[in-house]
């Protein structure tokens, strides 16, 4: 019984912390974008503007909860929940420290892949249920993008799995005690990072929302907290991709002198910053370019990585 409470408390704490982190991330992103664009960014609410997200949240909660009359109401409401739920579920298997994780699944990696693939439903359903041509276009783009990038996202990770010999994320981290997998699996790292960005449709892969082309795509019709859920979902996705990359390629919590949790946070934060830098720097490709990058460049790279790793593993008898 006490166990149950303990787990529940842990879940509660983690969710709270994650949501706060996601909110903080919004502020951090805006400040960093400001920094790189020679601006100040939000600096008025609280010290350094840190409470900006709180202000935004208050605003977004008080906005009219509007469902367009032409929308498919139940699906329209359900869609934004999907993205948050799946992202939180995926984060459940992330081992922040050797001991701190909600669950320690032996198929953790597969669970993560499953959850991140499920998140695609959120955008597709949102786009479809909005009954708006731009939203539908966004949804369709998202579907195509997810399917394409899911393929080699999984493939790119197989090298890591081969090296570690496990799907358990904790064991994968422990397997990197000597050498972080970014070195032997550099190709895999690259492919995974790109695929991860595409999965969470972060810039430069935000084609499903592309405000200049399809006026915010799948969430055109969303406002208030339902829009907020998409927003939170996106930033949870960024956290998730960063955390999983740290775990799979950057040795997770491992590092000298500092406690493991600090290392984990530090590595994740740097990666998140890098993802924001990408947003500040890179333009969005055309949709056909996105597709050809996926199928003509990333997929062969992932396969190549898999073959080399397999060959080395066979030869080295690892």
């Amino acid at each position: 019984m006490a166990d149950v409470f303990r787990v529940l408390a842990q879940i509660g704490t983690t969710i709270t912390v994650l949501l706060v982190l996601a909110a903080l991330l919004i502020w951090a992103e805006r400040r960093l974008l400001g920094l790189w664009q020679d601006r100040l960014g939000p600096n008025r609410v609280g010290p350094f503007g840190i409470l900006q997200s709180v202000a935004d949240m208050i605003k977004i909660f008080f906005k009219e909860d509007w469902v367009p009359p032409f929308a498919e109401k139940p699906v329209f409401i359900f869609a934004p929940c999907v993205v948050v739920i799946t992202m939180l579920m995926a984060l459940a298997v992330v081992p922040f420290t050797p001991t701190l994780a909600i669950v320690d699944l032996n198929v953790g990696l597969l669970f993560f892949l499953a959850m991140s693939a499920l998140a695609a439903y959120s955008t597709i359903l949102a786009g479809w249920s909005s009954n708006n041509k731009y939203s539908l276009l966004g949804g369709m783009r998202s579907a195509a993008q997810m399917i394409s990038y899911d393929v080699f996202m999984g493939l790119s990770l197989m090298g890591v799995v081969m090296l570690a010999g496990s799907f358990n994320l904790r064991e994968i981290v422990l397997a990197q005690q000597g050498l972080w997998y970014i070195v032997p699996q550099f190709l895999g790292f690259l492919v995974f990072l790109v695929a991860g960005l595409a999965e969470s449709h972060r810039l430069p892969f935000d084609l499903p929302e592309a405000e200049h082309e399809i006026i915010a795509g799948f969430h055109t019709e969303y406002s208030g907290m339902k829009f907020g859920l998409f927003f939170v979902g996106e930033y949870l996705g960024v956290l998730l991709i960063a955390a999983i990359t740290v775990i799979l390629f950057l040795g997770g919590w491992q590092g000298p002198w500092l406690p493991p949790f600090v290392w984990f946070v530090l590595k994740t934060a740097l990666l998140v910053a890098f993802i924001i830098l990408l947003r500040a720097a890179l333009p969005r490709p055309r949709f056909d370019q996105l597709m050809s990058i996926g199928w003509k460049l990333m997929l062969p790279l992932a396969l190549l990585n898999l073959m080399i790793t397999g060959a080395v593993a066979l030869a080295g008898g690892l």
Binding site: G34, L35, A281
Partner: peptide, 22 residues
């Protein structure tokens, strides 16, 4: 060129902001 862009943008970390606190 993409990598260079990323580097160029990153260099702006040390540039003074153009905006002022109106």
């Amino acid at each position: 060129s993409q990598l260079r862009t990323i580097w160029e943008v990153f260099k702006h970390s040390t540039v003074k902001p153009d905006t002022v606190s109106y």
